[in-house]
Design a protein around this nucleic acid. Structure first.
Lengths: 162, 162
DNA sequence: CAAGAAAGTTAGACGCAACTAAAATCTATC
DNA sequence: GATAGATTTTAGTTGCGTCTAACTTTCTTG
């Protein structure tokens, strides 16, 4: 049984937060959106076009979900889309997608220095990539450059990880 | 107008995926869950108890949301909870929360080496922490140790970031 | 060029995690 | 010990991103 606790802990300093929650602005860049854009640009680059089937397979989601998201992205001006026809990224969408892919690569290059298995690298990058600021990304990029030409450092690192 | 595209791109090698989507297992550790656990343990450590008001303030969410999540976490055996009384972490919940906090600290220590503003560090850590494997975390930890006693390396890094 | 197969879409539903408004309970104080 | 104020919970919605089933359109192939 838990005993009730006196409420006299302190007047609860409400210092922490001010912003009252950003009521879902229209074209907010969410995780799923970024995954779709990344996938779409990659398909276009590798196959010349991005089909719903392939997007669904790559992202491991059902096809109707692709249609739904495609329509959202179109409404937000990130891609052009015509029923039963094809998908094209707008200039804005392509710029965004490129940035996403670049971010993905920066992260991947960094993690590769640690001698992790590719599956782990992939999962972690997939997870982290949507939450990294440009500033931190720059730091990771610089770090990767250092590791690139410091085999000794990399060796020490890997040794310390065991 | 978009022209339809011939479907002869290739038989679409379905190599990518096999697992058919893990239908939401009962006690899956999601981002929100981890945020709550982290917050609860920190409140307990700093104030001696975790009240719903404080959790709500800290996480910047409404109080009813705290109640809802508290009940879920209780149902999953991560905490003990009695209506209108208090919250206690179970052994399992506390272990999990500790790991989450440790992960948070490892990430924070790494990012601090890059000379970023605290707000950026905090946001990025908050974002990334839920998506990093133990393996990568170990690497980050080793990396931090290296940076700790290599001011020259840190200096080169920061210079490269400008 | 007419099936049949493949791809895409619509419709309807669900789970998560949040919200507001209103009710219930607890604490403190007179 | 009653009651005002703080805290917590219930009830009812919402939006996102997913799903399945069923339907439509497009492509391929004999």
């Amino acid at each position: 049984m838990l005993r009730a606790v006196p409420r006299t802990t302190k007047p609860t300093p409400k210092t922490a937060k001010t912003a009252k929650r950003t009521k879902a602005s229209p074209a907010q860049s969410t995780v799923a959106r970024e995954d779709y854009l990344e996938c779409i640009l990659q398909l276009i680059q590798s196959k010349g076009l991005a089909r719903a089937v392939d997007i669904a397979t790559t992202l491991d989601i059902a096809q109707p979900s692709v249609t739904a998201m495609t329509q959202r992205l179109a409404a937000e001006g990130l891609l052009t889309y015509e029923k039963y026809r094809g998908i094209t990224l707008t200039t804005e969408g392509e710029k965004l997608a490129s940035a996403i892919i670049q971010r993905h690569q920066i992260l991947t290059r960094l993690l590769r220095h640690f001698g992790l298995d590719e599956a782990t690298i992939y999962r972690d990058v997939e997870g982290m990539e949507h939450h990294i600021s440009r500033k931190t990304l720059n730091a990771f990029d610089a770090l990767t450059a250092e590791l690139d030409h410091s085999p000794a450092l990399v060796a020490r690192l890997r040794a310390a990880m065991l």
